[in-house]
Design a protein around this nucleic acid. Structure first.
Length: 568
RNA sequence: CGGGGUGUAGCGCAGUUUGGCUAGCGCGCCUGCUUUGGGAGCAGGAGGCCGAAGGUUCGAAUCCUUUCACCCCGACCA
């Protein structure tokens, strides 16, 4: 393609609307433009990359026998009401009414829609298993759209759903998707990790997230430095340590006027935060408050706490509940003498002693508090947010925490939707049974910014050859020189005939601009045809990733380019 | 939802505190000539309801009120 025929309005200056590097580069490289917050148009170059990623996804998902279809984006409320999500989704759901005042939603996801389709068509075990996918625009009114197409309100998602007769069969398919996802993200060039994910109350035996490592990521993952354990922090367990056996000092009540937070107490009493115990009162769904103990240097993981409490929702207790439960204002709760309330302690409490702890009295804390001697707990549980240095639950070695971007999520749904929507089949014995489901998502439009976060330098984007908008770009530095331009065209046609996607920068621009644009766009191979080329007879081949240059006679040019691209 | 910030030419910004005559700068854009290995030079030119509405004033980008949009941080750990 000749650049003069293409719409590639690159930006020289930093766009003011963007903060994240990927967002800036996508705007500067003329891949996207914003229409509204979290709503973007794709320009030709951005769409090329999107299509390339879709192509890889289709190839791998087709290969495991999953069939593509396209479901509607506009969906009637009645389906959502069947599963209760019409209410549960809340403000994240874009809603609209038709002329007859009937309610619709712009689909934020499609479990209900696909389940409805399948329950109408599938009656017999002979029709199962089945799996379907689509690449569809989803709509979610995110509370805070972020970083361009990273977290948008209108975005492209590949979602797949599978339908099974048995749990074993569901797991077989789950493994296929898991492996297909590994292939997809590897082919796209991601540095990623696969982590165990929280399956929440939805149940099901397993759930994994595919996370691209990146500091701007909104997900936190925990990995073992030695073994293969890896999990989302929401789910990550902590290994346990030994019971503390140090010498106990005397329990003493000290004045701590208006000193409430862990960090304030720590600096006021001059003790390190790990010597503190925070006592936090939670309100559960059932209404009875619970006291939760965690060391001052740790945070509570509410997802894990919910699982221990076997509830879907907890919230911090309000000031009045705290006072009723502890006889002290917020900030001074402690387990010493605490009665009539369930006390759940993190295992970390068992591994320390001589704690500083709330006094259950205004403006006071205990020091030298020890388990069993001074206070008791109802039970121990793993409820803290796993942090750097915590022990691996599998091998006991050190865990490390890092940030990442969720690229994909696989989920064993069980019968959550099929049961609510009465999607059943008749088995071999004539008995009616509920279909078992799985679902598997990839945030297609998020893949691009996630990739760029991992693959860029100070000049711009660095594309992997199989997702690059074009594989090579030919730069005739002076189009007014017919010999030079003719040579550039020769090279251009040669590469095209070899089956490569090639750009020819035939614009009447200065060489400097052509270089900067080519590097900004991130085209893997940059072929320069200028005065030097004419003089030496060799063609200059630049490799974007390393910026190294090769000089090659035109006869062997194609071979060299293929070699550099790794497509020999 | 809470907090902070920003809206002035296609893009990036100054001007707003202390109201003043025709609203500036750089890049980009258009025309012509020269130039061509890292965003060229000269000459000429186009482009703005200063986010929107209302108000104060002889006079508003600037002051007041309302409103909209966008960006960032946070969303309760006692």
């Amino acid at each position: 393609m000749r650049i003069s025929q293409l719409f590639i309005p690159t930006l020289f200056e930093e766009p003011q609307e963007a903060e994240a590097i990927s967002h800036k580069l996508m705007l500067r490289a003329a891949m996207i433009r914003r229409l509204s917050s979290g709503v973007y148009s794709y320009l030709p170059l951005g769409l090329k990359v999107l299509h390339n990623m879709e192509r890889i996804i289709r190839e791998e998902i087709d290969a495991i026998g999953c069939q593509e279809l396209l479901l509607p984006a506009m969906t009637p409320a009645s389906l959502w009401q069947e599963t209760g999500r019409w209410d549960a989704y809340g403000e994240d759901m874009f809603r609209l009414k038709d002329r007859k005042d009937a309610n619709f939603a712009l689909g934020p996801t499609h479990e209900e829609i696909i389940t409805d389709l399948v329950r109408r068509e599938v009656k017999s075990y002979r029709q199962l298993p089945l799996s379907f996918y689509q690449i569809q625009t989803k709509f979610r009114d995110e509370p805070r759209p972020r970083f361009g197409t990273m977290r948008a309100r209108e975005f492209l998602m590949k979602d797949a759903y599978s339908f099974h007769r048995s749990e074993d069969e569901a797991i077989e398919t789950y493994v296929k998707f898991y492996q297909a996802y590994e292939k997809i993200f590897t082919r796209c060039g991601f540095r990623f990790r696969i982590v165990e994910a929280d399956s929440g109350l939805i149940g099901g035996s397993r759930s994994h997230e595919f996370i691209a490592l990146s500091d701007i990521g909104e997900d936190t993952i925990v990995e073992c430095s030695v073994c293969k354990y890896a999990a989302n922090q929401e789910k990550a367990e902590c290994g346990r340590g030994e019971r503390w056996t140090g010498e106990m000092s005397a329990l003493q009540l000290v004045d701590t006027p208006n000193v409430k937070s862990a960090s304030d107490v720590s600096s006021f009493l001059n003790v390190s935060p790990d010597r503190l115990v925070k006592t936090i009162i939670y309100q559960t769904e059932s209404g009875s408050p619970v006291a939760v103990l965690v060391r001052g240097d740790k945070e509570i993981n509410e997802n894990k706490l919910c699982r221990v409490l076997n509830t879907g929702q907890i919230s911090l207790a309000d000031a009045r509940t705290v006072e009723q439960a502890t006889n002290a204002p917020v900030g001074f709760a402690g387990p010493v003498g605490l009665k009539g309330i369930r006390i759940i302690a993190d295992y970390g409490i068992n591994e320390g002693g001589n704690f500083v702890i709330g006094g259950n009295k205004p403006d006071s804390h205990f020091i030298g508090a020890n388990l069993d001697r001074d206070f008791e707990v109802s039970e121990f549980a793993d409820i803290r947010a796993t942090a750097d240095g915590d022990k691996c639950p599998q091998c006991g070695k050190e865990l490390r925490v890092s940030k990442g971007i969720e690229l994909g999520h696989t989920f064993n749904l069980g019968t959550k939707y099929s049961k609510a929507m009465n999607a059943t089949f008749t088995d071999e014995t004539g008995k009616e049974r509920t279909i078992i489901m799985g679902c598997y998502g990839i945030g297609v439009s998020r893949l691009i910014p996630a990739y760029i976060e991992q693959h860029h330098d100070s000049s711009g984007i660095i594309w992997e050859q199989n997702i690059a908008p074009y594989q090579a770009i030919v730069l005739p530095l002076n189009i007014a020189d017919p010999v030079q331009f003719g040579l550039a065209e020769d090279v251009y046609y040669k590469l095209q005939n070899a089956g490569l996607s090639v750009l020819l920068d035939d614009r009447d621009e200065r060489p400097g601009r052509k270089f900067t644009d080519a590097e900004l766009l991130g085209i893997p191979i940059m072929i320069v045809v200028g005065a030097k080329t004419k003089a030496s007879g060799n063609i200059e081949i630049g490799y974007r990733r390393t910026k190294e240059k090769h000089f090659e006679p035109i006869e062997t040019l194609v071979i060299k380019v293929r070699e550099l691209l790794g497509v020999i």
